[in-house]
């Protein structure tokens, strides 16, 4: 398991947060997701095999951009 912090650009409304959460949920191997609208950040707990690319793609699907992963 690993914990990733994503900074997300363009997230500005409540439905954005819930869309990102929904989209990330569909990625297999992602366990815990918490999206903070106020900080424009999401914290993801995922199995080690989940790649950063996959996560970025899932966020991009909803129309937002991951600007940083730590």
């Amino acid at each position: 398991m690993k914990k990733l912090k994503l900074s997300i650009e363009g997230m500005h409304c409540a439905s954005c947060a819930s869309n990102i959460e929904k989209s990330l949920k569909k990625v297999s191997g992602i366990k815990e997701i918490s999206v903070s609208l106020m900080l424009k950040k999401a914290t993801v707990e995922a199995e080690d095999y989940v790649s950063e690319e996959e996560i970025k793609k899932a966020v991009a699907r909803t129309g937002y951009k991951v600007s940083k992963i730590e």
């Binding site: 500005h12 409304c13 439905s15 954005c16 869309n19 989209s23 699907r61 909803t62 129309g63």
Partner: peptide, 11 residues
Amino acid sequence: RGLFTLYFNMD
């Protein structure tokens, strides 16, 4: 984009 991808949002 939200309308096309079905990830509807405020916009």
